[in-house]
């Protein structure tokens, strides 16, 4: 079991923002869907560092990313 980031896409879409995507250390892990104006996480690539949570919650006060527990194979 390990933690990965999960974007609340409905909330995120309100902002047209993309900031977390620009600060994630992992390639093609946090991505952006232009059509829906929302960030999304490719969970297999996420290392659970929470830098995106720092960006979205601590810096921007938008609180659209949550860390969730997943099991290997989920």
């Amino acid at each position: 079991m390990y933690f990965v980031a999960e974007v609340n896409e409905k909330e995120c879409a309100k902002y047209n923002c993309k900031q977390c995507v620009l600060f994630c250390p992992e390639p093609n892990c946090l991505n952006y869907k232009q059509s829906d104006h929302t960030a999304w996480v490719w969970a297999d690539r996420c290392k659970g560092c929470e830098i995106c949570v720092y960006v979205c919650s601590d810096l921007l006060k938008r609180h659209c990313i949550e860390m969730v527990m997943v099991k290997t194979g989920d």
């Binding site: 250390p25 952006y32 659970g48």
Partner: peptide
Amino acid sequence: LGQFKELVEEHPMCAGCYMAY
């Protein structure tokens, strides 16, 4: 970033490493 396929792939650097960023 986040809207195209990046040149660098998954790699074994630590979680949250800003050298990796």
